[in-house]
Simulated scan of single mutants.
Amino acid sequence: MEKKQSLHAHIKSELLARIKNGTYQKGEKIPTELELCKNFDVSRTTVRAALNQLTLEGYLERTQGRGTFVADKKVHQTLSQTVKRYVDQVEVQGKTAEIILIDLSVIPASETIQLALGVPPNDPIQKIERVRKANHSPTQYEISYIPWSTAPGITKEQAETSLYNALKQDFHVAIAKTTEHIELTLSDESTSYYLDSEIGLPCFYIETVAEDQEGNKVEYSQSYFRGDKTNFVIERLYPEDAEV
């Protein structure tokens, strides 16, 4: 290490490697700050900076008066082409999945919704607010907008299972394409309330527009994912003759 200011990054990297290779198991208490200072021969400030970053990123959990523990593994979700429901993606990771309906109402289309879905002004839109959980801990807060004309009268039961499955099975609307825009954001007062997090937590923000087989826009959604509890997997398929 050539630069003193890179010490905390080195320590963070080493601790993260120990977490990922199983040296430190989920729920295990890691060495104290003092022990880590002696282990790495650095100051307490340097160790604390590394621990704070790992905590912010969701790899560690710090409990007042008890110490620092290895957090549960993050929920993996697929952004590639997939037909797996959220419940299926979570349960295959050994976690219990839940979808909680917060609000189901009909609202007039705002300018943002008009642009996203291509509907007339004040067109009736079903607004569906949900929280997704893994092992009873919130990982995602989502607001979906579906035109009434696309699927009139969506129910609580449909919203708490799979909207896309309900659209296909109950309203004969098959999703053929989604376009997703992803960026980083910080949780505000409302988002942090539903995600059960502190205000300012780094989150993934994804806007999605779904289309049916005829190219009609049938859903627009805004989703916030806890950055400390979620990561994404992207798979790309390349034809043999592709130039990359």
Score class of each variant (00 low, 15 high):
Asp88Pro: 03
Lys217Glu: 01
Ile113Phe: 01
Phe225Glu: 01
Ser162Leu: 08
Glu183Cys: 15
Gln77Cys: 03
Asp212Gly: 04
Ser43Cys: 03
Ala50Val: 09
Asp196Asn: 14
Val92Tyr: 04
Ala50Ser: 15
Gln25Ile: 12
Val70Thr: 03
Asn231Met: 13
Asp103Met: 08
Val90Gly: 00
Asn21Cys: 12
Lys133Arg: 11
Ile146Gly: 01
Asn216Tyr: 09
Ser190Asn: 15
Lys3Cys: 01
Gln222Arg: 14
Tyr238Arg: 10
Glu157Ser: 13
Gln126Met: 10
Glu189Gly: 06
Gln114Met: 10
Gln222Gly: 09
Thr139Cys: 08
Gln213Ile: 13
Asp88Gly: 01
Val87Gly: 00
Ile100Met: 08
Gly27Met: 07
Lys95Val: 01
Pro239Leu: 11
Glu214Trp: 12
Ser190Glu: 15
Arg48Pro: 05
Glu98Pro: 03
Val75Trp: 04
Glu240Val: 14
Val233Leu: 15
Ala151Lys: 03
Lys168Cys: 07
Glu129Leu: 12
Lys12Leu: 05
Lys168Gln: 13
Leu201Arg: 06
Ala50Phe: 04
Ser137His: 08
Arg44Pro: 02
Ser105Lys: 02
Asp123Gly: 08
Asp170Tyr: 12
His8Gly: 04
Ile175Met: 07
Thr78Met: 04
Lys29Gln: 15
Ile146His: 04
Leu51Gly: 07
Glu2Leu: 00
Thr55Ala: 09
Lys177Met: 10
Val173Phe: 00
Ile206Met: 11
Leu36Thr: 08
Glu243Pro: 00
Gln169Phe: 12
Ala49Lys: 13
Val75Lys: 04
Gln140Met: 14
Trp148Glu: 14
Tyr193Pro: 08
Lys156Thr: 12
Ile11Trp: 00
Thr179Gly: 07
Ser192Gln: 10
Leu36Lys: 04
Thr185Met: 09
Ser105Pro: 00
Gln126Ser: 06
Val173Ser: 01
Thr230Asp: 07
Leu195Thr: 05
Glu2His: 01
Leu60Gln: 03
Glu235Leu: 13
Glu198Ile: 10
Asp88Met: 03
Leu195His: 04
Pro31Val: 07
Ser80Trp: 08
Ala176Cys: 13
Ser192Val: 10
Gly153His: 10
Asn52Cys: 09
Leu167Trp: 00
Pro138Leu: 01
Gly22Trp: 06
Pro120Glu: 07
Glu157Arg: 15
Asp212Pro: 02
Glu189Trp: 08
Asp212Gln: 05
Gly65Gln: 02
Gln89Asn: 00
Leu60Pro: 00
